[in-house]
């Protein structure tokens, strides 16, 4: 039935030179066109052309990996928009955030970004949960599981660095407490076990201004330096790394034989 040649608006668009130059195939009606459509698109060919039947079932994947990725995209877009109005300095940060909801029409961009971030953390956990429950981490997918764990960690870090940016009470105290844990890192933090062993004569190599916490905060306490460093990590550094890992992750899903199938 689908193979019957239709003539109509849709079909003539599909036959036009512009459409064909972009999508190569016409409107995907025939089996062949549908397969070629997926194969020829740089985005769609993340997917294979054909899948085992259970792999498209919601009941199997919960679509949680896909939703994690979608939420990441939502966060990227809303985050870029927020950057137009937000200045990462102690002087402006708080008031800029306050102004966001008042001065911009339809000011829910901040809400979308914040609740989207919460949703992404949950989605990534649930995705891991489903991968575990279907035993999909077993060979040959061990490596992709490990990549996933790192992305889970990065998702939490992204959320954590973003937490500081509104520069309100919630923000600085959560980060103060969090960053002070870094101070206790063995050997690398100045209040960590073993740090006092790293000394030349009287000079401590790992001190308040030369330990891992300082590298994170760019200062002795959560202040101007910390705000800027967290901002840069949140907006550029961590998204950059996680985007690369996502590319690896998706590539590996396919190279490891696609969505896991009963063996």
């Amino acid at each position: 039935m689908a193979d019957k040649k239709k003539t109509g608006l849709l079909a003539s668009i599909g036959d036009s030179q512009i459409w064909k130059s972009i999508f190569r195939t016409g409107v995907p009606v025939t089996r062949r066109q549908r397969m070629m459509g997926v194969l020829n698109s740089v985005f769609l060919h993340l997917h294979p052309v054909r899948l085992p039947k259970h792999a498209v079932k919601l009941k199997y994947t919960w679509c949680m990996g896909g939703l994690s990725f979608f939420l990441f995209l939502v966060l990227t877009i809303s985050g870029i928009l927020l950057m137009f109005y937000y200045r990462p300095t102690v002087e402006y940060a708080y008031t800029d955030i306050m102004d966001l909801s008042e001065q911009v029409p339809l000011g829910i961009m901040r809400e979308i970004h914040r609740w989207g971030a919460h949703a992404m953390v949950i989605a990534v956990w649930l995705h891991m949960f489903r991968v575990f429950m279907t035993g999909s981490y077993k060979p040959p997918r061990e490596f992709n599981w490990a990549v996933g764990v790192i992305m889970l960690f990065l998702t939490l870090l992204l959320s954590f660095t973003g937490y500081l940016l509104p520069w309100d009470q919630l923000a600085i105290w959560a980060i103060t407490v969090g960053a002070n844990m870094a101070r206790a890192t063995p050997f690398l933090g100045h209040e960590g076990p073993g740090a006092s062993l790293l000394a030349i004569g009287d000079i401590n190599l790992v001190s308040m201004t030369s330990d891992i916490r300082f590298a994170l905060l760019g200062g002795r306490f959560v202040g101007e330096g910390a705000l800027l460093r967290f901002y840069v990590l949140h907006c550029v550094g961590l998204p950059f790394i996680i985007a690369i890992l996502m590319a690896v992750h998706f590539w590996r899903v396919r190279k490891d034989g696609g969505i896991s199938t009963p063996v």
Binding site: T209, S210, F214, A215, G218, G219, R220, E224, G225
Partner: peptide, 12 residues
């Protein structure tokens, strides 16, 4: 790169 994380002057 690591040294770059530790500025010489602190504005505190």
């Amino acid at each position: 790169i690591i040294r770059f994380l530790f500025p010489n002057v602190l504005f505190e």
